[in-house]
Each structure stands twice: as structure tokens, then as C-alpha cells.
Design a protein around this nucleic acid. Sequence first.
DNA 1: CCAAAAGTGTTGGGACTACACCCATGA
DNA 2: TCATGGGTGTAGTCCCAACACTTTTGG
Lengths: 230, 230
Amino acid sequence: MYSYKYPRPALTVDCVLFGWDMQTEQLKVLLIERAHDPYKGFWAFPGGFVDMDETADVAAARELEEETGVTNVYMEQLYTFTGVERDPRERVVSVAYFALVKPHKHKVVAASDATRAQWIPLSEIEKLAFDHAIILKTALERLRGKVRYQPLGFELLPEKFTLTQLQSLYEAVLGEQIDKRNFRRKVLKSNILIQLDEYETNVSHRAARLFSFDQTRYEELTAKGYIFEL
Amino acid sequence: MYSYKYPRPALTVDCVLFGWDMQTEQLKVLLIERAHDPYKGFWAFPGGFVDMDETADVAAARELEEETGVTNVYMEQLYTFTGVERDPRERVVSVAYFALVKPHKHKVVAASDATRAQWIPLSEIEKLAFDHAIILKTALERLRGKVRYQPLGFELLPEKFTLTQLQSLYEAVLGEQIDKRNFRRKVLKSNILIQLDEYETNVSHRAARLFSFDQTRYEELTAKGYIFEL
DNA sequence: CCAAAAGTGTTGGGACTACACCCATGA
DNA sequence: TCATGGGTGTAGTCCCAACACTTTTGG
């Protein structure tokens, strides 16, 4: 038992992971079905308590791995939720994290406590536990805000992709149609794509050229104050 | 005494308040001189513990008022600092807040516990307690990022101001020179300024016209998806 | 009349939008 | 040969950066 002069809220982390499903061209979110009350049967973000000897960043990575098997993803702090009644049991403050992953690279494994972890399409999400609907909304706003001035698209796509795939992703995230020619011109001019000598296979129409993201080049440009836009 | 099965970090808030000194054309930050150890004599942001029945937002506003007498300012959450060794006494997690105020409208009063609260020019800040130097750095990045696409300048200036005053403020925050004609054209075209029929007084040169910020108009434009830039 | 800051227009180049047709491939 | 998506260019407009002189005022 640990005793304090004044009461303290518990401290947790929650991880909002976005992934892009290339087959269905949908944004998905990694969720866990809760096995116990409160909110038994509801969906929730992976997360859990912050230990005394770890930062919230470390706790977020650890909980994510424990609950979903997903490791080694870039996460950034999103927002801290401090509502007094967030958790019906007791006061819990939660630091939420935000990440973009390539789902095919991160096989979701059965969670340690036998709850299901699954990629759920954004459009089909319902019954979220606690205040996780608000957390999701906040994460979506961050995603839409960032996508315009940081090349986030490449975090979600496989290493090699076509320009049309990149465009569909942007259209889905931004919720608007983009002109094909203008999109291509803009993204190529930015000089952060490497044109490969490879093409799609197994398509019943002209095969599209593949590209990859030039991380090194992007870092060079960023260091010089360059800001990627749309 | 309050007992828990597992240890818990304490939860605090810290408030980073920026103000603009029109006389000296300097950005200032509201700081408190610590009266006790640890970090006795160092400067720190106003802040304190989050009570069990209040959100962090409420705690930030309350602590700010208690320690500096400043009330009724718009604050937004900045970032949550969770370093294990932030506080040498015990583990303390702090939710930092960020605000812009018009210093002349917020008289700083003697703090309740006899410590000094003062506006310190950014360039003269030293000896910050805890990890407050990192918090300040984070707040400055937020300020510089936001100033480009939100009309923050008006939060810092008095109700009536000249275009030159507005420009100096932007130059100070962004750390770069701006062309006078281009700046004026751009800011006037944005349609969020009201041109007044009033002029500076007591200057020994041509008196500059005064303007005020058109809050209503800005909200109309924002609602329609307009995004202010520079 | 002098010092000091206010105020004002133009031009050239680059970026953005809108828009429609031919090409390559597999079935 | 057909269906499907891949790939390409131009013209008009708007926005931006760069740049220097005249005006007003108080001392």
C-alpha cells in the first residue's frame, strides 16, 4: 500500500493508432474489445497505467506492445484528458498518444489478457468505452491538421506505392476530391519521392509506376527550413 | 491519508503566459520567484496541484489566479511532461498550459505566499526551476507555429493599435524582418481589421492610424473554412 | 527646416486551378 | 476490342516578393 497526504488521480496512457487499408481504401483504427466491466464488450484504445519508473512515452509503447503485439512505431503525445468522471470507478487522468502505422507490417497478435485487438474501419466504429469517442475526435483533428504540412501519407503506405494510392489516401483523410494532374505535379515537385523502375503487377489495365518515399531527402529539406504542404 | 495499491505520481499544472511589452517591443513571460527549496530563488511558471474534483483546465485557471491575480484569460493545453526525475522530491507529472495576454489589462498582484510574480523579457530568462526551460521551449515552438495560421497577434496587443505595432510584434515572434508594404497589404486584405478614425497621439512625427481586431468577422470567416495566414 | 516614422504602387515570376484526351494492359 | 485505370500539358489567374519615394507631424 502507498499512502499520500492528499488524494491523487491514477495516471494512464491511451494509444490511437491509425492504419490505411489499401484493399478497401479505408482508414482504420486499432481497438481492443474490453473483456471486463466497466464497458465490457465496448471498444477501447490500447493503454494502461503508467509505472513509477517510466515516462508516459515509454508506458504507451509498452502497453501497446503488451496488448496488441505492435512494436516500434513512432508515437507522439496527442492530448491529456482530465475529466473528473472519465472513469466511473475512480479519477483517472489519461495521456493520449497518436501514431500512424503500416498495418501490413504490424501483425496484430492476441492480447495477453485474451481480449481481441482489431483494426476497425473509421466508419464502423461505435460503442467506444470511457471518453474514447472524444479522444478519437481529437486524434482525427490532429491527423487532418498534420497531413497538410507534414508528409504523413508515407507513414501509412507500404514502402513502394503508386501515385494513385497516395492520392486516394489523401482524399480519404481530407475528405475531398483532388485533381489528379495537379496532385502529381505538386507531389513530384516536392522532390521527396523516388521514382522506381518498377510497376504494379497483376492488374488488368496499364500497370502504374511505383514510388518510394525519400526519407533522407526529406530530412535534408526539413533541416533547411523547407515545409512540405499538401 | 489516502492509500492506493500501487504508487501514483502527483499531478500538477504549469501555466506559460506570454505578454507583449509595447514600450520595449519585447515578448515577456509571467514568472514567479520560488520562495522555498527545491530551486529556491529560481524562476518558475505559476502552477500547482490538481484537485480531485477539478479538471486540469480548471486547476490551471485557479492556480494562475491564486499566484498572480491574473484571471479570465484564454488558456489551452500545451503538453504533458512526465519525466521521472522532473522534481527531485518525488514523481510529479505536469500538464502545461499556454496563454497569450495583454499585460496592461492584467495587473500582477502580490502572490498569496509572498513570492514575487513578474513579467520577464524572454531574452533575460535564466535560472528556471525544474524542467521549466524545456516547457518554455515547447511553448515558444507552439507560439511560433500558431502565429502563422491564427491571428494571435491581436491577443497580445491593446484594443487599438497601429499596423506598425502589429508588424513589430510579428517580427519579434517570428524572429525575421517583414516588408512593410507587403505586410500591410496582406493583413488588410484579410478583412479582420477595422480601420478606425483615430490616430496615435503624442508622437513627434506623422501620427499613425489606429485599427482594431474584428472578432465577429474573424469568427464568420473561420466558420466558412477560411484560414488566416501570416 | 529637420528628423522620424507613416503611408503608398508596380512589376515580374512562380504557383495554383481547371480541364480532356491518348496509352498500356489483361481479359 | 473493350474496359479499366495510367499518364500527360496548357492557359488564365492570382499571389507573392522585391523595391523607394513622398507625406505628415512635432520640435
